[in-house]
């Protein structure tokens, strides 16, 4: 079982992420047992059938960089887990998608970063509202992952507001004149 970082600590992952293989149909693809995170296409195709599982907290939905988070706007109170996929760590669309889910649409459930998730992006991911980081599979040993937790705290007082702290520094702190 892989490991995830949740609220700053390492936990075992209980979820299985389903990706559609070439030729698989969102409407008919078989879902594994247990807690699953399905692609947006599966959710949209089978929403009525999956709604009870989502509300029971055993089914989540993941968004790709091309997906519009507004597609989930009506389901945000029902969904307890949404994931955003980073196909490459340098593909930054997920930062805006997360920001929109949290700040615009008010999503308050678990928000996971999945895919090419590396420690040197942990700080920015967390700032944009991800509370669960799923490091790239087999990338880090347990020891490395423990060390990587320090990356969550790379900067103590960032300048601009973001999801984690909406107020920018100039509203957060009284900035005295430098001598």
């Amino acid at each position: 079982m892989s490991e995830i970082i949740k609220n700053g600590a390492i936990h075992a992952d209980e979820w299985t992420l389903v990706r559609l293989a070439e030729g698989e149909d969102a409407a008919t693809v078989e879902l594994p047992a247990g807690r699953v995170i399905v692609p947006l296409a599966v959710w949209l195709a089978r929403r009525d059938a999956l709604l009870a599982q989502a509300e029971a907290g055993v089914l989540g939905v993941w968004l790709a960089g091309t997906d519009n988070p507004a597609a989930l706007a009506d389901d945000l109170l029902r969904l307890q887990l949404i994931a955003v996929d980073f196909p490459k760590f340098a593909d930054g669309r997920g930062y805006s998608i997360a920001t929109l889910l949290r700040a615009r649409h008010g999503y308050a459930g678990e928000l996971r970063a999945v895919g090419d998730v590396l420690r040197d992006q942990f700080f920015f991911l967390t700032r944009c509202g991800f509370d669960v980081l799923v490091p790239k599979a087999d990338k880090y040993t347990r020891t490395q992952l423990e060390t990587a937790l320090t990356s969550l705290k790379d900067f103590s007082e960032p300048y601009q507001g973001a999801v984690d702290r909406a107020e920018p520094l100039f509203r957060r702190q009284s900035r005295k004149e430098a001598a």
């Binding site: 930054g92 930062y95 805006s96 700080f123 920015f124 944009c128 300048y159 601009q160 973001a162 520094l169």
Partner: peptide
């Protein structure tokens, strides 16, 4: 400069 420095949403444009 301050706003754009380490803006978390716009580091991977």
């Amino acid at each position: 400069r301050q706003w754009s420095t380490f803006h978390p949403e716009f580091a991977y444009l």
